[in-house]
Amino acid sequence: MIEIKDLKKSFGEKEVLRGVSGVFERGKTSLVIGSSGSGKTVLMKCMVGLIQPTEGHVIYNRNIDFVAIEEKERKEIRKEIGMLFQGSALFDSMTVEQNIMFPLNMFTNMTHKEKLTQVNSCLDRVNLKGSNKLVPSELSGGMKKRVGIARAIVLNPKYLFCDEPNSGLDPQTSILIDELIYEITQEFNITTIVNTHDMNSVIGVGDYIMFLHKGEKNWEGNRKNVLLEGSKELNDFIFASKFLQEIKTKMVI
């Protein structure tokens, strides 16, 4: 479980996060949604310590304040975090297999054979069996994301962060990736946080949904009430297209 309390971040004069609070529970897929530039990536990076928040707390496991602890202790927690970056961030100089094996090389004393078994089972998990020897430049966007997910889960993390896992993918592939993340979350009972502005994800996998608007939490709920309840801003965000607006009007009638 991760709790954030009144998280604020400014870059110079510019306030990007203006006091965001919320609870992300274990075993659930939590979504942070919001339009481009609303601060989703900054929020996620604050939560994992890649950006130091100006104010506020990020509490792991009910008692560890990630903002306050030393870099050394952070490193320990980070070994339990898997993260998928917006641009996948695969290591260009390594093959798919080496990418996924990298955390194992760094942090375990497994034999090569054990590592390979673990890598293959992760590749299998993301439906990329047999792509071990490809290099990142040979992969499509969707494959890169899946390799990114495989690398993120190879050490069996307790926390999984995904920054826009389905941006730039076709609707079908993007639903597959959402389902993959959802299943992994349930299978391993981990805390998963996903940044997205994809409506299919919102309706499909949102156990908990936080809507960010201009750096503030504008609304929170889940996939059941996201369509009918919600603030004006949320409605504008979700029903951005005329077509959906018409459908909604009909639904309500």
């Binding site: 890649l50 490193k75 320990e76 980070r78 970056f85 641009g87 961030a89 290591f91 260009d92 760094m106």
Partner: peptide
């Protein structure tokens, strides 16, 4: 520089490297 802007350095830091 490429590793920095494509977040590969962040990814390393995130792994605790």
């Amino acid at each position: 520089g490429t590793m920095r802007i494509s977040e590969q350095i962040d990814a390393l830091e995130m792994m605790g490297v």
